[in-house]
Amino acid sequence: MDTATSAPAPPDRISPTKRRIHLGRWGVHAVLLAYSLLALGPTLLIIMNSLKSRSAIFDDAFSLPTSETFDLVGYDTVLNGSSFDVYFRNSFIVTVASVLLVVFFSAMAAFALAEYDFKGNTMLALYLAIGIMIPIRLGTVSILKLMVSLGLINTLWALILVYTAMGLPLGVFLMTQFMRQVPRELKSAARVDGANEYRVFGLVLPLVRPGMAAVAVFTMLPVWNDLWFPLILAPAEDTRTVTLGASAFLGQFERNWNALLAALTLAMVPIILLYVIFSRQFLRGLTEGAIK
């Protein structure tokens, strides 16, 4: 019997194992740290250079702004010389509306998929999952035609609808996992207490808040950053989003680097704020230990 003979482990065998775990942890941290630097580097570069004069950007892009090179001309251009307030409002409306719709509809669909035993349940879930793998941009031409015939070109609705469709597959998939974790007896108790199905859904929602926050975060980022659909569906001056507005500084002949970098820096602020709000919800949901 192998196990019997090796069972009383000699005491010195414990520490190497521990050391290995420590090494493993350091390794993981090193990788994560490197990745963070890689991800943050360009961001820092953008912020740094947005605060410098044009010549300083070209002289040495990697140096911090000094008293000589410090220049807010980019911000001046963005805030006073263009209608960025409108762009920001547009981006904000589109992002928040899409996120809300995606979260709400994916919660509803996930509730049905997780809760009800109906014919084609699995098929429907698979069909929705296909949407995760196939990029919605493949359908751009049809979407454009559709929006034209609906008369929605150059409206924020066009963007909101497309982004809702874009976010739903992953949203439904994630929410279904969370919905499955809500104990069956909790829903039974609500039904016995006299709740109809909408009430049961309403009762379950607070319990899947971490899931909703996760879906919100995953939906929000690509929507806020998207350049493609604003360019195709809503390029008009008064429906432009921040990303599209910023790209205007990348003219064919002249590039206003100061303004571009300033616009990109400003564009980060709301998304970071939204992220903080949602991730707080996420953490609160987790620590509450609501689902037991």
């Binding site: 104990p183 007896e185 039974s188 108790a189 016995v192 207490d193 609501a290």
Partner: peptide, 14 residues
């Protein structure tokens, strides 16, 4: 109009 008590109590946690 029937009330039920469950094994794991199924109280609404929030």
């Amino acid at each position: 109009d029937i009330a039920m008590v469950f094994q794991n109590y199924a109280l609404y946690p929030h």
